[in-house]
Design a protein around this nucleic acid. Structure first.
Length: 458
RNA sequence: UCCUGUUUAGCUCAGUCGGUAGAGCGGGUGGCUGUUAACCACUAGGUCGGCGGUUCAAGUCCGUCAACAGGAGCCA
């Protein structure tokens, strides 16, 4: 198998090699030309040295930034500082020429401009690092669960239940939208492909619970969809979510898993993507690596929602949003708690029933539910989870409390009749975790081809 | 969706008090004994986001639409 540039850069010089890739920069002087060649396999480029009269002058003039080439020659220790080895070219083949209007230049571009050329931006250093780390983070997540005996469940992407009553969902239909069949004045979904209204999933959690009650420890990791008209740096219409679910597990066990999970995936990426993480530390967010190392080392703090509210009320900070028991915590509150009050990651637990989802387990005080959010310095909430309501009667009460139709949840209620057990889980937005780990500030820049309101190009 | 801001060369930006447009990079040409986003010289490149208004005169002031960004809400 051919060697990629990552492997070539680690080879013992001198040795004859063949390198393939795209030209990142060109520097010429009278007797020598230098190319920086990249193939996405690592953050570093391979320096190619072209001596006088090595190749045809017409070929040399075609070696512009962006061109794809194959270079054969001898890998030798570099004569200059800046790289350990370099490739002395003996032969260069132009595999893919580049037109002079190639938009990427050897200078800084704005992320806004690069979003408009999503078909070319993966070749830049920043996006090379982003998508290598995205892959590494994904693998770290799978390894974490696999090491603990978790089974991954491929929960459905097309669903017929508005699972959590959360937000707008995308419809999936084969009906003619210009003239849909009607019955009793409404669209007649009985004539649709699934013979009922179908939607794109917003969460695999409810289906994951089914598998947790058969395989004990499971997780989902797949795409989810929200049709919300949210136009922010942290929202996308299509994103990936990680949702572990554990049977015979309470909220404390849930938090213990979440803490071990965060530590492990961060340390995995730090050790496996050292060069890319150094790149982010230098160019995207100063101090990033140190911030993450502190998260890996720190014991996460714990406090209840009620304790958090009183801490906020006694803080003498002036918040834009009011603080009072029963109101949800705003971003500014979460940031203050994790950054200033405790100065490390913190779990907030036992939220008021009314501001959390119907499936969360009602506590004995009947005012709070067994919910937890993990807040981390820099971003605020990164994980949300809960112990699920395993008692059938209480779950029915919760459905009534949230004005949901029990008939839509018959199979979910059934789980509480046939060997139901205490169980718990949490959800992690994959892209938000990636933003946290890379320091990238816009979710559109950690997704290969982002889907947001008004944008589904590429 | 709301608030605020931005829109000038292929890219990143400057443009003062209203008087018909500038730089760096990139492209082209030439130079340079090994460069590190190389460097030096010359050169081409513009419907100043669209439409409308004020004015003798608009990149500049006003209105409007659009795109983009930041913040908010919603959330992951």
């Amino acid at each position: 198998m051919k060697q990629n540039i990552s492997q070539i850069l680690q080879a013992n010089a001198p040795i004859d090699v063949e390198a393939e890739g795209w030209i990142a920069t060109v520097r010429t002087s009278k007797n020598v030309t230098f190319l920086a060649l990249g193939d996405g396999s690592c953050a570093a480029h391979l320096q190619i040295v072209i001596g006088e009269n090595t190749i045809e002058r017409t070929l040399l003039s075609q070696l512009g930034v962006g061109a794809a080439i194959r270079c054969t020659g001898t890998l030798v220790p570099s004569l200059a500082a800046g790289q350990r080895v370099e490739l002395q070219a003996q032969r260069i083949d132009l595999i893919g020429a580049v037109d002079p209007d190639y938009p990427l230049q050897k200078k800084r571009h704005s992320f806004e401009f690069l979003r408009t050329i999503a078909h070319l931006r993966p070749r830049t250093r920043t996006f090379g690092a982003v998508f290598r780390v995205r892959h590494a983070l994904q693998m770290a997540i799978h390894r974490f669960f696999d090491d603990r005996g978790f089974i991954q469940v491929h929960t459905p992407i097309i669903t017929t239940a508005d699972c959590e009553g959360a937000g707008q969902m995308f419809h999936v239909t084969t009906l003619d939208l210009d003239a849909p069949p009607r019955a009793n004045g409404a669209v007649d979904y009985a004539q649709d492909f699934f013979k009922q209204k179908a939607l794109l999933t917003v969460s695999g959690q409810l289906e994951a619970e089914v598998f947790a009650l058969a395989f004990k420890n499971v997780y989902t990791f797949g795409p989810t969809f929200r049709a919300e008209n949210s136009n922010t740096a942290r929202h996308a219409a299509e994103f990936w979510m990680v949702e572990p679910e554990m049977a015979f597990c309470d909220l404390a066990g849930d938090m213990a898993l979440a803490e071990a999970f965060m530590r492990r995936i961060i340390s995995d990426v730090l050790t496996r993507c050292e060069a890319d993480m150094d790149f982010f530390d230098q160019w995207i967010e100063k101090g990033l690596v140190q911030r993450l190392e502190k998260v890996v080392q720190a014991n996460f703090a714990h406090m209840t929602y009620t304790e958090a509210i009183s801490a906020l009320q006694q803080s003498n900070e002036s918040f834009a949003y009011p603080v009072s028991w029963g109101l949800d915590l705003q971003s500014e509150h979460e940031r203050w708690l994790t950054e200033k009050h405790v100065g490390r990651p913190v779990f907030i637990t036992d939220y008021p029933r009314g501001i959390k989802a119907f499936y969360m387990r009602l506590s004995d005080d009947e005012r709070t539910v067994a919910a937890m959010d993990l807040l981390v310095p820099g971003v605020g909430e990164i994980i949300g989870g809960s112990q699920r309501e395993e008692r059938r009667e209480q779950l029915q009460q919760q459905l009534h409390f949230f004005k949901l139709n029990p008939a839509d949840y018959d199979w979910y209620l059934d789980l509480r009749r046939f060997g139901g057990v205490p169980h718990a889980g949490f959800g992690l937005g994959f892209e938000r975790a990636l933003m946290y780990i890379t320091g990238m500030q816009n979710i559109r820049d950690v997704i290969p081809f982002a889907r947001t309101p008004g944008h589904a190009s590429f």
